[in-house]
Design a protein around this nucleic acid. Structure first.
Length: 259
DNA sequence: TCAGTTGTTTATAT
DNA sequence: AATATAAACAACTG
């Protein structure tokens, strides 16, 4: 269930375990996750190279090496696991990087996105150049400018990876609920005060979620109640509204955030 | 059997 | 350029 906090965790897995280790081979169990590269190419171009410090931009992990860089996306169901030695394949394991120190396993049930290869970090940046600034590191002034220039519904704008990278459906609803702003408001209609509040709540939700390793499903969070049959606002107990906004199911509190 | 799903890309129209 | 919408991708859950 990868949202930005989960992806940050995958990056950490790479950083803590894989960095410095040499890739001996890549075992492609399901080429359906490869994007723009064949299984043979992936192995031959990566073999012998060592993982460097990984980066994250939005929901992408860039696993650099002293040669090519691996671009990973996790769609709705992907994840990354490290095992110190060889481990039998999990049910949805699609690809394994076998290194001299252990194995990095890419699991993904649905295969909605996948893995691609860039010749170097420069090409990796070029491939991801259409992404907006990362939601965790975007500066308040830049964030305000981005919101100001968009007339579409706030929910749609926040989820648009070309505007700000990293916010998915659950995170966006959680942030808007905490900022007490209606998801259908035009982004450009926010007052300066509202933009500052939105920014502050976004930072808080992201930092708290990253610490937890995912968006917490606690009862005090919108995320923790949104799948209940008749969910109520964790703050004021008002029954929550739900509708499709920007093509995704959205949940909000009509009392805290307006109808 | 059918609807729904935590995401991205592409096409299409406005 | 923005904006809005739908479809496709794939495989599971309720």
């Amino acid at each position: 269930m990868p949202e930005l906090p989960d992806v940050e965790g995958f990056k950490r897995t790479l950083a803590e375990h894989a960095t410095g280790h040499q890739i001996e081979r890549v075992a492609v169990r399901d080429p359906g996750v490869l994007r723009g590269v064949s299984a043979r190419q992936l192995t031959s171009r990566l073999r012998g190279h060592r993982f460097a410090e990984p980066r994250r931009q939005g929901k992408w992990v860039i696993a650099g090496t002293d040669g090519p860089a691996v671009l990973m996306h996790f769609g709705m169901t992907g994840s990354l696991r490290w095992t110190d030695g060889h481990a039998p394949a999990e049910r949805f394991e699609r690809l394994t990087f076998v290194t001299d120190g252990g194995e990095l396993h890419y699991d993904d049930m649905r295969k909605l996105t996948g893995i691609s290869l860039a010749s170097n970090d420069e090409e990796a940046r070029r491939l991801l150049r259409s992404l907006g600034p990362d939601a965790l590191t975007v500066q308040p002034g830049e964030f305000a400018d981005l919101m100001h220039g968009r007339r579409a519904a706030l929910k749609t704008v926040l989820m648009d990876q070309h505007v700000v990278a990293g916010l998915g459906n659950l995170l966006t609803d959680e942030i808007l609920w905490r900022a007490c702003i209606n998801p259908r408001r035009a982004a450009s209609s926010l007052t300066a005060h509202e933009v500052r509040r939105l920014y502050a709540r976004m930072r808080w939700v992201l930092r708290t979620s990253i610490q937890a390793g995912d968006v917490p499903a606690k009862r005090s969070w919108l995320t923790g109640v949104r799948y209940e049959p008749a969910p109520r606002c964790p703050r004021c107990r008002t029954p929550l509204c739900h509708a499709r906004i920007g093509g995704r199911t959205s949940v909000w509190c009509p009392r805290c955030q307006g109808e």
